Amino acid sequence: MESKVTTQNSKTQIPPTKPTKDFLNRLEIYLAKRDGVDKLLKISRYATKIILASSIIPETQNPLINRLKSFESSVGISRKAFRLGKFVQDVNALRTANFSSGYDLDLFLCLIAYGGEGLYYFIEQFVWLGKAGLIDKRHLNRLQKMSAWCEFVGYFGSVSLKVRELRKISENERCLMTSIELSELRGIGCEEEMGKLRKLREKKLMKKLSTIQDLADGLMALADIRDGKGKLSAPMLVSSAGLLSAIISTHKNWLAC
């Protein structure tokens, strides 16, 4: 009787194995997200911009160039439609930030980062309405300039925050490495510390990629502010920065699935 009870208990204690997601299931989850589709459109848009900025297609093939320009323009308008209401996530981020602890540089940078990005996404809704023809296009240039400035300010705050976070991660990494070295000298097992170090290095890598992405997007915002003037606003450089940003964001969203 006791053997039956223990057998039943042992059966109930075995956790069910979760089925691993194959590529198509993961792709379905990825495409169900707004950011997933948006970044795929971003890749296609800036890949097209790179083709147009290069000499891959001869100038004699005007019909193909015109089609690529039309495709790039329509994808850009489509991406703006995907940003409808996206400013709400920045509003919520500001709501959850703790501003009651007095002056703190991190909180100030959060205000710049989320405030700038939130205003950018909010104004982009009106830019989309202008490009779609619902709003008089006389206001379009002013709205685009305001949008670019808000985006640039937001990325300045975001990069500053991530650089500070990278410093903290590096300090924690050094502390863990010192602890592991001492444990090895004493002959003590340090499997738990090794696991923490591995996760910390993965977090550090993703934070570095995210910083590079923000720098690339900030470069594009600066090009919009300067109306494409200057060496940093060269079409090939800006298009390459946009493609790099899209690939990094796609990688992060894919891992999140």
Rank of each mutant, 00 (worst) to 15 (best):
E173L: 08
I123E: 07
K199V: 05
H139Q: 14
V163I: 14
T178D: 15
L140S: 04
A148V: 05
Y114F: 03
E184M: 09
L222H: 01
L215S: 02
L205C: 12
S179I: 06
M146Q: 04
L200E: 01
G133C: 11
K207T: 01
E165D: 14
G154R: 04
V153D: 02
A113M: 10
G195C: 10
L197K: 00
F156C: 10
L215H: 00
K162P: 00
L119W: 11
D224Q: 12
L185Q: 15
L119H: 03
S147Q: 07
I180T: 00
L161E: 04
R198W: 13
K208N: 11
N141E: 14
S179Q: 14
Y114C: 02
S179T: 13
A132D: 08
L134V: 10
R186K: 12
W128E: 03
F156Q: 03
K208I: 07
R138I: 05
K137D: 02
G115N: 12
F152P: 00
E181V: 09
L119G: 08
R201M: 09
L143A: 04
L200P: 07
M177S: 15
L205H: 11
K168T: 11
R186C: 11
L219I: 03
A223D: 05
L222N: 02
I212G: 06
F122G: 03
I180L: 08
G218P: 05
W149S: 02
G189N: 10
Q125W: 09
L119I: 11
I112W: 01
G118Y: 09
L107D: 15
L119T: 13
G218D: 03
L161C: 04
E193Y: 08
I188R: 15
E165R: 15
K145M: 10
G195N: 10
G157L: 09
L143C: 01
L182G: 11
R201I: 07
D214I: 01
H139V: 07
D136T: 02
C150K: 03
E202W: 14
K131P: 02
E184F: 02
M146V: 05
E184Y: 10
V153E: 03
R167Y: 14
G130V: 01
D104Q: 13
N141Y: 13
L107F: 12
R186D: 14
L205Q: 09
R164N: 11
K229H: 14
L182E: 15
S210V: 01
G189A: 05
D217T: 08
A113E: 09
I188N: 14
R201Y: 03
K199G: 08
F156E: 03
K131H: 12
G157A: 10
G118H: 07
L109R: 09
S170D: 07
I123M: 13
Q144E: 14
R174C: 10
